[in-house]
Amino acid sequence: MAILALDNVSKAFGALRVSQHITFDLAEGEALGVIGPNGAGKSTLFNLITGNLPVDEGRIEFLGRDVTQVPPMERCLSGLGRTFQIPQPFEKLTVFENLVVAGAFGNRLPENEVSDECADILVETGLIGKANEVAGRLSLLERKRLELARAMATRPKVLLLDEIAGGLTEGECHALVATIQKVHAGGMSIIWIEHVLHALTSVAERLLVLDFGKVIGIGDPDTIMNSQEVREIYLGIDV
């Protein structure tokens, strides 16, 4: 059964149609990769799913419920976790406190009921050594890890990752992918926007290609990457 379903979702900023008739399902436990050139509407797609942008038309279903009109905070509470393309940590709070905020507010629980779990997530995401450090002092990799850890602390049912591997070195990227693989292996459903293709294909079971706000292909990564249309549009290869 689909945990998240978009049906004919469209969004325009004036004359600019950033999302056009987007339709796809995400199965429970699935990892879906989203690719497309800059300006294809990938981040917009996330903002529509989380409710940070209202849709113009179409319908979004999450856990079998129509959430098209549900405000963003409530969608988070019902299990949509997201990371931001540019990390947005709570700079003056410690790494651990960053997670406690997400755990306590994202699940409407008292602090002491989520603190153990937050500590465990820090172990899992390799941040435990920085637990008591102020988030403003973290390196880029650590900030990206914190984005992931903080989203996980809200106990999401679907995790939306926005270019989390961008800007990292090869080694850092490998380490992060390993973490995401581990999270996914635990049964987490994931939608992941990424330009770093080898990172994406090592986790995603299906790829969705966006161009000018339209879905131009969705399916098995090999098939997608070998399709002529995708190679032309996305990879800029003349065929």
Binding site: T50, M73, C76, L77, R82, F90, F105, N107, R108, A153
Partner: peptide
Amino acid sequence: AARSVGVD
């Protein structure tokens, strides 16, 4: 970011 993790 606070809103995105459920803080009102």
